[in-house]
């Protein structure tokens, strides 16, 4: 909205033309806020863990770290009912199509957290391996990366709160 006002008409930064984006107005903005509030506070993760990080994910669910405080505890076994897939653990070539399929089976909107070094880049299994996918973002788009091998449960909680922040800035009815 503001870009066009600040940039002189003859000096557009992009080669193409910038279209005027319609402002949502009060009602739609408020509705957007409500939806984003609901979505960010109700992230149901898919029960999906391939290796060590899954144990730390379980730790995040336990009484000490207790992700139920944020409403994350409704872990769904079926991808149809999940909003969030926490890729906890190494993804190998054979698993990649399965993960893609799981992601495709999830209804929109869907979010991905890449948990641990293996999912970010292959991690400890980056060199000299023939079967490891070097980064889960080769397969599915990732919203939040959590480094660590494995990350502590606090780090996972932090990543989920970061994801909440991200969702709160999304636009559902407005076009941003």
């Amino acid at each position: 909205m503001d870009i066009k006002n600040n940039v002189p008409a003859n000096k557009l930064i992009f080669p193409g033309q910038i279209h005027e984006t319609p402002d949502g107005g009060f009602l739609i903005t408020k509705l957007d806020e409500v939806i984003n509030w609901a979505r960010s506070n109700s992230l149901w993760p898919l029960i999906f863990g391939t290796s060590c990080c899954a144990i730390e994910m379980m730790s995040a669910a336990d009484a000490k770290y207790d992700w139920s405080r944020f409403g994350f505890e409704v872990a769904r076994a079926s991808p149809r009912q999940a909003d969030l897939i926490i890729v906890a653990g190494t993804i190998v070539m054979k698993m990649a199509p399965v993960l893609k399929r799981l992601y495709d089976q999830m209804p929109d909107p869907k979010y991905v957290i890449a948990m641990g070094a293996c999912t970010i880049s292959g991690g400890p299994f980056f060199y000299n391996t023939y079967s490891v996918v070097k980064g889960v973002d080769h397969i599915i788009p990732v919203d939040v990366y959590v480094p660590g091998c494995p990350p502590r449960p606090e780090a996972l909680l932090h990543s989920m709160i970061t994801l909440q922040e991200k969702i709160k800035n999304e636009a559902f009815f407005r076009k941003s």
């Binding site: 509030w37 609901a38 506070n41 109700s42 336990d62 944020f70 409403g71």
Partner: peptide, 21 residues
Amino acid sequence: RLGPNRVGPKGSMQIVADTVK
């Protein structure tokens, strides 16, 4: 453990959030 306590007072709006979502 504690259960929902972040959304609304004492987490009472948790289910509302889930439903709207």
